[in-house]
Amino acid sequence: MNFATVEGTFSYIKKFPKYSKDFYNFNGDFFVSSIGLGTFRKEPYKEENYLSQINFYKSTKTALQNGINFIDTASVYRYQESEKEIGKALNEMIKNGEIIRENFVISSKAGFIPLEFPFPNNPYEWIYKNIIKNYLAKKEEIVADQHCMNPKFLEWSLNNSLKNLNIEGIDIFFLHNPEFQLGYVKRDIVIERIKESFKFFEQMVEKKKIKYYGIASWNAFLYEENHLEYLNLKEMIDIAKSVGGEKHHFKYIQTPFNIAKPHMFNYVNQMDEDGKYYTLHQVAKKYGINIINSSSLLQMNLFKSKFNKKIKKLTNTLELNNIITALQFARSNGSLTTLFGSVNPEHIKDNLILSYIPLAKKENMLNLLVGE
Results as ranks from 00 to 15, higher is better:
Ile170Cys: 03
Asp171Ala: 01
Asp171Trp: 03
Ile172Gln: 02
Phe174Asn: 05
Leu175Met: 03
Pro178His: 06
Pro178Cys: 11
Phe180Leu: 06
Gln181Arg: 15
Gln181Gly: 08
Gln181Thr: 13
Leu182Ala: 00
Leu182Arg: 08
Gly183Ser: 13
Tyr184Val: 02
Val185Asp: 07
Val185Thr: 10
Lys186Met: 14
Arg187Leu: 06
Arg187Val: 08
Asp188Lys: 12
Ile189Glu: 04
Val190Ser: 07
Glu192Arg: 12
Ile194Ser: 11
Lys195Gly: 06
Lys195Asp: 13
Ser197Ile: 00
Ser197Lys: 05
Lys199Phe: 01
Phe201Thr: 12
Glu202Asp: 06
Glu202Lys: 14
Gln203Thr: 15
Gln203Pro: 02
Met204Arg: 14
Met204Val: 04
Val205Trp: 03
Glu206Arg: 09
Glu206Thr: 11
Lys208Asp: 12
Lys209Asn: 11
Lys209Asp: 08
Ile210Leu: 05
Ile210Val: 06
Ile215Glu: 03
Ser217Tyr: 00
Ser217Cys: 10
Trp218Asn: 09
Asn219Tyr: 14
Ala220Asp: 09
Phe221Tyr: 07
Phe221Ala: 09
Leu222Lys: 06
Glu224Gly: 13
Glu224Tyr: 14
Glu224Ser: 14
Asn226Met: 10
Asn226Cys: 12
Asn226His: 09
His227Arg: 04
His227Thr: 11
Leu228Pro: 09
Tyr230Val: 09
Asn232Val: 03
Leu233Gln: 07
Lys234Arg: 15
Lys234Gly: 08
Glu235Lys: 02
Glu235Asp: 12
Glu235Arg: 01
Met236Trp: 11
Ile237Glu: 00
Ile237Val: 06
Ile239Glu: 08
Ala240Glu: 04
Ala240Cys: 04
Ala240Thr: 13
Ser242Asp: 08
Val243Met: 04
Val243Asp: 03
Val243Ser: 13
Val243Asn: 00
Gly244Asn: 02
Glu246Leu: 14
His249Gln: 02
His249Ser: 00
Phe250Trp: 01
Phe250Val: 06
Tyr252Glu: 03
Ile253Leu: 10
Ile253Asn: 05
Gln254Tyr: 02
Thr255Cys: 13
Thr255Pro: 05
Thr255Leu: 11
Thr255Arg: 05
Asn258Ile: 10
Asn258Phe: 05
Ile259Pro: 07
Lys261Pro: 00
Lys261Asp: 15
Lys261Arg: 15
Lys261Phe: 15
Pro262Cys: 06
Pro262His: 00
His263Met: 13
Met264Gly: 13
Phe265Tyr: 15
Phe265Asp: 04
Phe265Ile: 14
Asn266Ile: 10
Tyr267Phe: 15
Tyr267Gln: 15
Tyr267Leu: 15
Val268Thr: 12
